[in-house]
Design a protein around this nucleic acid. Sequence first.
DNA 1: CTCGCTGCAAAAAATTTGCACATTG
DNA 2: CAATGTGCAAATTTTTTGCAGCGAG
Lengths: 142, 142
Amino acid sequence: MNYIDIALKILKDNGYKQTKPRQKVLEILDKSNESLSAYEISDKSGKKLDVVTVYRVLETLEQNNLIHKVVSTGKYRKCYISEKSNLNKCHHNIICKNCGYIEEINCEGMNIIEKVISSNSSFKIENHVLEFYGLCQNCKLD
Amino acid sequence: MNYIDIALKILKDNGYKQTKPRQKVLEILDKSNESLSAYEISDKSGKKLDVVTVYRVLETLEQNNLIHKVVSTGKYRKCYISEKSNLNKCHHNIICKNCGYIEEINCEGMNIIEKVISSNSSFKIENHVLEFYGLCQNCKLD
DNA sequence: CTCGCTGCAAAAAATTTGCACATTG
DNA sequence: CAATGTGCAAATTTTTTGCAGCGAG
């Protein structure tokens, strides 16, 4: 099952309706290799989706862990989901500074880092944001 | 020498003028335990500083590595600087979800993580953003 | 005295809200 | 048909730009 179908199923399971705007936003994000803003998504829909609707759809999708906000830009990117569970996966991205291409990565070491930080500070750490920036395979060759 | 004096000296050394707005913004950020937006800084100045000026001062301070933008909120926080060098220090923050208190931390492990990611992906990684969220000592007791 | 910096006005961009109507289940 | 979700209008918030005048060096 592909990203869109899984996402729609999760929405349904969580009591959300499967509407055309939601499906359309998922399709646009699924196709894109880079993160997109609400306005960019509205544009890519041929303006069929109002920006306000896009904002609200994005909020819903994010709450259900179906998409991920790139914190340095505020734009959105689909993220890995599976039929079994989409709960609290630790999402990290590498973002190409040149073309915007984003790849989701697996970063096992962070739980260790969190433990080290926890014991070196007086904080109780609950979560973190981590984004890497650089050049993707194509752009580093130029 | 304290934060403000060092910062002003660095500005001077880099060819920037030492102006009252710059000094005032530095003072406000120095006093604050949490990150502040341009509007909050303007307010804390008793509206003596125009928001536009604050935006421009913040931009200058950031370019000189004297302050640091909290990427998840867009607000600014002073960061560690020394008379000798303020170049490209790797800044990481722990941010209290409850009260907003921010502490700058030293996070040695990240260069190792960057190397691991580099070798596991096709990207040439240049930098990263890392922020931790949790509860500070005071707030975790409540 | 000169160049860089600030303040004011205004524009542009990003995000949120209210409400009537449409759509899903 | 009942509850959610959408579209439009409008308000709010955030950030940027232009330009005249001020002030640091």
